[in-house]
């Protein structure tokens, strides 16, 4: 049950069945497995301390009104990131993991 109401972030050209390539492309309620952090080293370090470690499962949650920043659920916490940061966090695309989150 993909949420396609006004709240979820526009998928930006991402088709119904296409997997999301970055955190940015996840719709609200979807999840993905983090593959790589394409950000400068010190920012990557901080993101990892917050739980954004390659291999971890990340769920897209709510966003600020207007869609930016967005909140992501990772490792038991909720962390807000700006769009540009979320777009630099690449997801694994081989697996069909992007089902609605039930937790």
């Amino acid at each position: 049950m993909l949420q396609l109401n006004g709240k979820s972030v526009p998928p930006q050209g991402r088709g119904e069945q296409d997997p999301a390539e970055t955190l940015m492309e996840l719709r609200e309620g979807e999840h993905g497995i983090l593959e790589a952090l394409e950000v400068p080293e010190d920012i990557a370090q901080r993101l990892m301390e917050l739980g954004f470690i390659p291999g971890s499962r990340i769920v897209a949650a709510r966003s600020a009104p207007g869609g930016d920043p967005r909140v992501f659920r990772v490792d038991g916490s909720e962390i807000a990131l700006r769009r540009e940061t979320a777009a630099a966090l690449r997801l694994r695309t081989l697996l069909t993991t992007q089902l609605p989150d039930v937790s």
Binding site: V39, L50, P69, I79
Partner: peptide
């Protein structure tokens, strides 16, 4: 430069 914003809720 615009700095990344990371904030725990």
């Amino acid at each position: 430069e615009r700095t990344p914003f990371m904030l725990e809720m």
